[in-house]
């Protein structure tokens, strides 16, 4: 892998990020009317107070001046202050991110492993009952709306059966610490995590299945079989390795969507992560918060795309040397 290749990909990622930065600014200026008037509707503000608030929100001056200030501040990781809490947006995001990373990260890893295994066994036994069951299950779960699934699971397992808590990240009354606290949080995470895992697993399974089908008729599999390898060895050593290559991109992109991936499900389960933060910010609308969240979500997708681009040559020698 040449230095030039890496530098090119990294520069490309930064260029995309720069575009997002600009786009993000104008997107929120297009929808915005007058936040000061919206937020303080019905209250009597003096002109001086109004001007002061406008200045605090960074809405004074021309659009160009605002833009220059926005870029300067963003480069210093200052994403402005939330209208709702008046705390810095970056702090709010920083506080909510770990919960989302834990929830969606675990769900993505679980669904990835199970989905890939499902895809391999479905594709390798194409046309059998096993394939049909796995494929139709994948189709069904993939097309199920995740918030709907979440509400069903919540109703059945939390409300009716009482096996799981109905929401939140921990029991505020227990006062548990250390490992017990962690266990309590895992228990709270179980249902939203299951919801997301079910919602994600189908995509992994279907993509892996079609990758397996693509390599099925390759001559090197016939050769491997002719050499005297067992069916499972042919599959694991030769078919899966080659079939995983096209799935790498999908996997990386899915990790990019970890941060933004659970807006609906976090809301259903009141999981205090970035998704819930987004829903709350939308109600305001808390524009600086939304603007900051959008930027962080985009940056995460761009970053993992870059990871995919850089990972691919390590997995495929044909790309590595060309």
């Amino acid at each position: 892998m040449s230095v030039r290749f890496v530098v090119g990909k990294v520069l490309g990622a930064f260029a995309t990020l720069a575009f997002v930065l600009v786009f993000n600014f104008f997107l929120f200026r297009v929808v915005e009317s007058n936040p000061v008037a919206t937020l303080y509707r019905g209250r009597n503000l003096t002109d001086a107070q109004r001007d002061e608030l406008t200045r605090q929100f960074g809405l004074d001056g021309s659009k160009l001046e605002q833009f220059v200030r926005y870029v300067e501040q963003t480069l210093q990781l200052n994403l402005g202050r939330s209208y709702a809490t008046n705390r810095p947006v970056i702090e709010e995001i920083w506080a909510a991110a770990p919960q989302t990373i834990a929830l969606v990260g675990v769900a993505t890893v679980i669904s990835m492993v199970i989905g890939i295994l499902m895809g391999i066994s479905a594709g390798w036994r194409r046309g059998t009952t096993q394939d049909r069951v796995l494929t139709s299950t994948s189709m069904a779960t993939w097309s199920t709306p995740d918030f709907w699934l979440g509400m069903i699971l919540l109703t059945v397992f939390a409300v009716q059966l009482g096996l799981f808590p109905t929401g939140g990240i921990e029991d505020p009354t227990s006062g548990a610490t250390g490992f017990a606290k962690l266990l309590d949080q895992a228990w709270h995470m179980a249902l939203p995590c299951l919801t997301l895992a079910i919602a994600y697993v189908g995509e992994f399974a279907l993509v892996m299945r079609s990758s397996i089908l693509d390599v099925m008729r390759e001559d090197y599999l016939t050769l491997a079989r002719a050499k005297g390898l067992r069916d499972a060895q042919v599959r694991d050593r030769h078919a899966v390795r080659n079939a995983l290559l096209p799935s790498t991109a999908l996997i990386a992109i899915n990790f990019g969507f970890v941060l933004s991936g659970a807006i609906a499900v976090e809301t259903v389960f009141s999981w205090p992560g970035l998704g819930l933060l987004t829903t709350e910010a939308l109600r305001g609308p808390d524009l600086p918060m939304l603007q900051g969240l959008f930027l962080v979500f985009s940056a995460s997708v761009i970053f993992f795309n870059l990871v995919a681009d850089l990972l691919y040559p390590l997995l495929d020698p044909r790309v590595r040397y060309s």
Binding site: Y220, L223, A224, G228, N242
Partner: peptide, 18 residues
């Protein structure tokens, strides 16, 4: 392979590319 082995056509994809 121990009793009978096949020389496949090499111009195509008889070898595993990775």
């Amino acid at each position: 392979w121990t009793e009978l082995a096949i020389v496949f056509q090499g111009a195509l994809h008889a070898l595993n590319p990775v």
